[in-house]
Design a protein around this nucleic acid. Structure first.
Lengths: 347, 347
DNA sequence: TTGAAAGCGCTAACAT
DNA sequence: ATGTTAGCGCTTTCAA
């Protein structure tokens, strides 16, 4: 059905080997005349190499895999864009897999990508706190690496992986400090799910900054929320309803949502309740997703270099191909920066 | 290096064929005892099938490809989510390729996906108006289909493709009508790039509605803009600066951006110029991307069922596998709906 | 520089 | 129900 290399070779009157060398590169070189003839035949017949066959013969594919929670989430969208573009520049195709943040799904995805013999797997989602889940994933990745696969992580997935490490903790601390400097004194935090490592990192940053002014985490309200708009809405609802008596005294003066998509939900809920932002309660997020500055009001947040993170993660993976599997583990620390906008006004 | 089926077979004391049948499904059936033994061996050895080898032997992969302009764009993010999740449910992996809206890139991407022997290609970006580019793409896809590949399109890419067809024209007309009903009389339009078909479709819808009240397109200002925030900003800038004398008389009372990401740029530019929305100028978009309702002010737009569109596009492709390549071309028309929000207030 | 031939790991006839 | 074997399309020794 499809045109094969063999047909091209016959058409050009050369051997299979020569056709292969002329069309699909190789250490060996082919005489100019023959090479041209082969290429002409290939064009004429409309030859396209059979990638699976090449993969089998070469024992290597031109594909990578990216694992993330949800491609529709703007945070992961930007990460994926950085990754896919970098991969494409290197001639690689990218498989994008949504894990939904579920370690079991992630494990299955890793096996599928391993089965595909992708060159590299990028762990773009957060690492998990559950030791069992982490161990299972580590084991699967270890098998994958034993066969030459490269693994890189975005944010902490344990040492042992080449990692692009944005300063979650430092960023959270810097943002919290900035809020304190603005005069806010009754912060409440909407933290990410406990099962994700980044949640703890960011929370630790908040604690760092609070400690500097003599506050501890038990003195402030912390609600956990999924990394989603709905999660943010519900969490801030609990925060407000939970404030005993609902008196303004108990009400937080600023809500720090540790992800922008949560903050979006927070803004929506406050709007619905008729609470002015930042007049009534100020709001801050984390990530600086593309539309953060266009929200109502513009969202104070921590800028993460998302495109770069995705790009560097793939870059590390490709570097690993050259260095060999046993080179030193690389960690690329990336600075982050608080962005103060209207949602935290000036109290 | 990697564990092969052969090793598993030997370990279990069965033939290669039996091992294959036991592990990787087949019409034939295998005795319970043997099957269990084979599975046990596979587990013990940590066997993972070699997908490229399977693809070669079966002459078919378990992958699909999705072509879109930019995965970081929320419109495509949602589309991709619908597509990847549906594919995953069917046991398929998805390769996501950013074309940047460039037909040349798209052509190369199609060839790559063809080379990969993906089962289906989803054209998620807009079709092109350039006949040359379209012909080249059609030709490449035609070769692909001749070898059993399925192609489905989101929005018009020509008949001949199974298509998920949101009512771009009808939606634009309905939105325009709604704006006219609100009392706006000096609309200006920020249209998409002429090289995309959807731009013309949406523009035609606007014209339809204007005609109903005796207006023609030459009586209103139309600026072209890339489907991006920056595109929207610049276009509305031209719109305002171009209004001779800049007198309020000449100024549009509503700007209809034919994509939400453009509308975001419009809102940003108006904010910067200190023009109130909707008090000074009202703004509407198109697509209803996830954050449209959370912007400042909430954006009036046309709701497209983005997740569903992505999902159905993959569904059509999978249906095509069964129907055979020669079944009738399917078109799935999807209704869209204007969403009136604060950005168009009530003049 | 070119060609012949042996696989790569797996599936699917075709036996038995 | 199980095994034997011939490929799938390509790359890559190994010879010439």
């Amino acid at each position: 059905m499809a045109v094969t290399l063999g047909q091209v070779a016959r058409h050009a009157g050369v051997s299979l080997a020569t056709a292969s060398r002329a069309l699909n590169g190789s250490a060996r070189t082919v005489g100019d005349g023959l090479a041209a003839r082969v290429r002409a035949s290939a064009d004429e017949l409309g030859y396209l190499p059979n990638a699976p066959a090449q993969a089998l013969a070469r024992a290597s594919t031109a594909t990578i895999g990216v694992l993330l929670h949800d491609i529709a989430d703007p945070y992961f969208g930007a990460l994926a864009k950085g990754a896919t573009d970098t991969a494409a520049d290197a001639g690689l195709l990218t498989m994008v897999l949504n894990t939904g943040g579920d370690p079991e799904v992630e494990l299955r995805c890793i096996r599928m990508l391993h089965a595909q013999r992708v060159r590299a797997i990028v762990l773009a989602g957060s690492g998990y706190t559950d030791p069992g889940a982490t161990a299972a994933i580590d084991a699967a990745l270890s098998l994958y690496r034993a066969e030459g696969g490269a693994v890189t992580a975005v944010s902490d997935h344990g040492d042992g992986y080449d990692t692009v490490l944005p300063d979650n903790r430092g960023g959270a601390a810097a943002l919290t400090r900035a809020l304190l400097d603005l005069g806010y004194r009754r912060p409440a935090v909407i933290a990410g799910p406990e099962r994700f490592r980044v949640s703890a990192e960011r929370l630790a940053g908040v604690a760092d900054a609070l400690a500097e002014v003599g506050l501890t985490m038990d003195q402030i309200r912390v609600e956990e929320a999924e990394f989603s708009r709905t999660g943010g809405r519900e969490a801030v609802g609990r925060l407000l309803d939970g404030a005993a008596g609902g008196r303004d005294q108990d009400r937080p003066d600023v809500v720090l949502a540790l992800s922008d998509v949560c903050a979006v939900g927070v803004l929506a809920e406050l709007r619905e309740r008729g609470i002015d932002v930042p007049g009534g309660i100020a709001v801050a997020g984390f990530d600086d997703i593309p539309l953060a500055a266009d929200l109502a009001p513009a969202l104070t947040t921590v800028r993460m270099p998302l495109l770069q993170m995705g790009a560097e993660a793939v870059g590390l993976a490709l570097g690993r191909q050259d260095d060999g599997p046993s080179g030193p583990v690389r960690t690329l620390r990336l600075p982050v920066e608080p962005m103060l906008r209207a949602s935290t006004g000036t109290p």
